[in-house]
Design a protein around this nucleic acid. Sequence first.
DNA 1: GAGGATCGTTACGCAAGCGTTTCTTTCGGA
DNA 2: TCCGAAAGAAACGCTTGCGTAACGATCCTC
Lengths: 114, 114
Amino acid sequence: MPVELTPSKALGLWHAVALEQVRIDSRDLTLRQMAILLEIYLVPPPHTVRGLAARLGVTKPVITRALDTMGALGLVDRVRDERDRRNVVIKRTVEGALYLEKLGDLIINQGRKL
Amino acid sequence: MPVELTPSKALGLWHAVALEQVRIDSRDLTLRQMAILLEIYLVPPPHTVRGLAARLGVTKPVITRALDTMGALGLVDRVRDERDRRNVVIKRTVEGALYLEKLGDLIINQGRKL
DNA sequence: GAGGATCGTTACGCAAGCGTTTCTTTCGGA
DNA sequence: TCCGAAAGAAACGCTTGCGTAACGATCCTC
């Protein structure tokens, strides 16, 4: 069942969510970081630096840096892959799940107001 | 008529749009810049630096810098208020309207796919 | 018309992101 | 057992954003 939106509602939703997010959360992730975070939490694992880079169409250092930042915020975790120790597997965290849960609630609530 | 979303669809929509936006557009606005841009285009004018700062809960230099950046991208324009020359009125541009129109289409299309 | 308030900008030092390039470690086939 | 390929991180110089504080221009009131 698709989500049907008019142009006005689509941008209105984006507007309301962006506004609330700016006001509430000082963490201010970039769009890329947000895309990476959502990818990690919404797409079945395993996730690797290389895989994410390919998926987003960016270079590997971009992913490494984003993981550094979001790791410091506790939103994601990194673990060496013991089966192929060149790989790093990106893990979800409780805090990251909570962060996205709040974002989801925000989107839903702003959607209801439209 | 509100937009009803499940948690899964809300985050799924955000995910899909963020991903496409990252892949397609190199401009990569920050969340703050996006909030400012949408505020300018969706809320009736006039818009001032001070007003936007209060609305977003940020300091004035944040707005000035965002307008610098987005002005250079052609997304917004600045004009002195002739009635009170201390004020700067922020104007919309054709390019900015086009940018948001594309974003709206993107949101709608990703919503349909859910 | 002088003095204080208001508006937006600029300056400053700092933190974080970028793309490119260069390691370091690890794997896997000859 | 080498030796090249692959994965991720680190290094480099640069750009952009941040918050605080100071600044010029303009308005308004006394």
